[in-house]
C-alpha cells in the first residue's frame, strides 16, 4: 500500500518537518470546520470558545480594508503574536501575493498556515510566492480549477474559493466553487489523449490535471471563503462541495459575534440537516450589512487579483 505523497524517511534518518504530507495533512484536520477572521486576542478567544478550528489573525477584516482603501499589508507581528498566545487552536495569517518576505516573517513568527491572499494588495503582478521553499504550509484562493492547480504547483497545501471578501455576499464564492467542481467533473470524463489538451487549456501541469481526473477531487483540501455571513451560507457552501469554510467579516461585523460564530460552526457540521440549520439561524441579531457585488467597480474586486 503506498501513498501518492513523498514517503517517510527510513528509521535512521531524523524526523522530517515541512513535508507535503505534513502540510496537506494539517489541512485535512481542519475539515468540517470554520476558520474565523479575528483582529484582537479577545476576538480570537470568542472564536475558539465558539468552536472555530482555527483563526486568521489580521489587522482589519476585509470589510474594513474595503472601507479604508489604501495598501493593505501583512499585520503587525505584535498583533499576530498576541493572538498566537491567546488561543490553543491553529493561527493563520495573510501575506500579500508574491510578497515572499512577508511570508518569511510569518513563518518566523510560528503561524500554523500562511494565506497568500488577494484581500491584501498584491506585491507582484506576475509571480506568486514559491511555497515549496517554506516549512509553514500555505492556503491560496482560486476562482477556477486552472488557478487552483497553478497554486498547488507552486506548493499550496490547501485551496479556498476566493469569493468576494468583505461583501457579506456569497454569490462569488458559489460561482467559484461551482466552477471548480464542474471543471473537475468534466475532467473525469476525459480520456488520456484529452487530458493533455485539458492541461494546456487549464494552464496547469499535466501531472496535476491527471491526478485530479483520477481522484475526482483536488489533491489538497478545498474550503470556501469570501462572503459567508450566515449559518445557511456556510451550509450552502458545504453542500456545494466545500470541505469547510472561512468566515471573514461575517462574524465580527455582525450584531452578536459569539452567538453567530457558534451558529455557523453548528451549521457547518450539520450542513445537510435543515432543522439544525434553522435552529442555528434563530435570533442571531443583525447580520453584516453586505454589498451587492455587481455594484462593485472592477478595481475593487479582490477576486481579480492573482492569476
Amino acid at each position: 500500500m503506498s501513498s501518492a505523497l513523498p514517503t517517510t524517511p527510513s528509521q535512521d534518518q531524523a524526523p522530517a518537518t515541512g513535508t507535503a504530507r505534513v502540510k496537506r495533512g494539517m489541512a485535512e484536520q481542519l475539515k468540517g470546520g470554520v476558520i474565523m477572521d479575528v483582529v484582537t486576542p479577545e476576538q480570537a478567544k470568542i472564536a475558539e470558545d465558539a468552536g472555530a478550528v482555527a483563526v486568521m489573525a489580521l489587522e482589519r477584516v476585509p470589510a474594513d480594508i474595503r472601507k479604508d482603501g489604501g495598501v493593505a499589508r501583512m499585520s503587525d507581528p505584535d498583533m499576530i503574536e498576541g493572538i498566537i498566545n491567546a488561543v490553543s487552536i491553529p493561527v493563520m495569517a495573510k501575506s500579500r501575493i508574491g510578497h515572499f518576505v512577508e511570508a518569511q516573517v510569518l513563518q518566523s513568527l510560528g503561524v500554523d498556515y500562511i494565506d497568500e491572499s488577494e484581500v491584501l494588495t498584491p506585491a507582484d503582478e506576475v509571480n506568486h510566492s514559491d511555497k515549496w521553499a517554506f516549512t509553514t504550509p500555505f492556503v491560496c484562493g482560486a476562482t477556477n480549477l486552472g488557478e487552483a492547480l497553478r497554486r498547488i504547483a507552486e506548493g499550496a497545501a490547501m485551496i479556498r474559493s476566493k469569493g468576494e471578501a468583505g461583501t457579506g455576499n456569497v454569490v462569488e464564492a458559489v460561482r467559484h466553487l461551482r466552477q471548480i467542481k464542474n471543471e473537475i467533473a468534466k475532467l473525469r470524463g476525459f480520456d488520456n489523449h484529452e487530458l493533455y489538451a485539458a492541461a494546456k487549456e487549464l494552464r496547469a501541469p499535466y501531472e496535476l490535471v491527471k491526478e485530479v481526473a483520477e481522484l475526482g477531487k483536488l489533491p489538497v483540501v478545498l474550503f470556501s471563503a469570501g462572503g459567508v455571513a450566515t449559518p445557511a451560507d456556510a451550509a450552502l457552501m458545504r453542500q456545494l462541495g466545500a470541505e469547510g469554510v472561512f468566515v471573514g467579516s461575517g462574524i465580527f461585523k455582525s450584531g452578536d459575534p459569539a452567538k453567530r460564530a457558534a451558529a455557523i460552526v453548528k451549521a457547518t457540521t450539520f450542513y445537510d440537516d435543515p432543522k439544525v440549520i434553522a435552529d442555528a439561524s434563530r435570533d442571531l441579531g443583525e447580520a453584516m450589512v453586505g454589498i451587492n457585488c455587481d455594484t462593485l467597480p472592477e478595481a475593487e474586486r479582490y477576486a481579480n487579483r492573482g492569476w
Binding site: P9, Q11, A16, T19, G110, V111, Y113, T135, T136
Partner: peptide, 10 residues
C-alpha cells in the same frame, strides 16, 4: 509543538 514542528518519523 506548532505546525512548523509537525513531522514524519518511523
Amino acid at each position: 509543538g506548532r505546525q512548523n514542528e509537525s513531522f514524519e518519523a518511523s
